[in-house]
């Protein structure tokens, strides 16, 4: 464990809690892509199955349980409690355009052709593209609530910090996880446009609105 990974996990946890707080306080999930949240729940469900078979550390166990719980609560809020505020018309990204290539690539590029490895690989590739429906929705509506931009910022920052973690681990313990690293780079690149808007607009107190 290193500082980049701890900060990355905390950034991820903060993002998830910001989203829940936004929905809880505003009693609305306007501007939130339910599709992205479904993909995140799928990422956690396929990656954290080892929860029941392998004990790595208390930290690892607790964080996995929190992520799984929060992701399902988030989906319950969007499609259950606050479904009247769910902006279905703007959340139109075709999930099959993400799931089919990700499933295909998981079968092609993996470390081992066994169920647990295929599921882990699927979750890594899926996480890289899971935010696309949310970014697509913002481009559809042309703007995003400020609290939503903070959610996206910490969500993007988490994997960027993981990139630093992999650089650190490579130099200190020759650790190199090619699938996770390449996927993490792609995932972070998808946020670059948003990061630019966040830093030039939101941090200056303006509202995030796309040109």
């Amino acid at each position: 464990m290193n500082v980049f990974r701890i900060l990355g996990d905390l950034s991820h946890l903060l993002a998830i809690l910001i989203l829940l707080a936004k929905m809880w306080r505003s009693k609305s999930c306007a501007g939130i892509s339910g599709k992205s949240q479904v993909l995140f729940a799928l990422v956690f469900s396929t990656r954290y199955l080892d929860l029941f078979f392998v004990f790595i550390s208390l930290y690892n166990l607790v964080m996995k349980v929190i992520y799984l719980l929060c992701s399902y609560i988030t989906i319950y809020m969007i499609y259950g409690k606050l479904r009247k505020t769910y902006d279905r018309e703007n959340d139109t990204f075709r999930l099959e355009f993400l799931l089919i290539p990700v499933i295909g690539l998981s079968f092609l590029e993996n470390y081992d052709f066994i169920p647990t490895e295929l599921l882990w690989t699927f979750s890594i590739y899926l996480e890289a593209v899971a935010i696309l429906p949310q970014l697509f929705m913002i481009s559809n509506t042309g703007e995003a609530e400020t609290i939503t931009t903070h959610y996206l910022f910490f969500l993007g920052l988490y994997r960027a910090l993981y990139l630093a973690n992999w650089i650190w681990r490579y130099h200190t313990e020759k650790f190199y996880d090619q699938i996770a690293i390449i996927s993490g780079v792609v995932q972070t690149i998808f946020y670059c446009d948003f990061f630019y808007l966040y830093i030039t607009k939101v941090l200056k107190g303006k509202k995030l609105s796309l040109p």
Partner: peptide
């Protein structure tokens, strides 16, 4: 690439 080692990362 690395083999399928213990997945200690989240």
């Amino acid at each position: 690439g690395a083999e399928s080692k213990l997945k200690d990362e989240l």
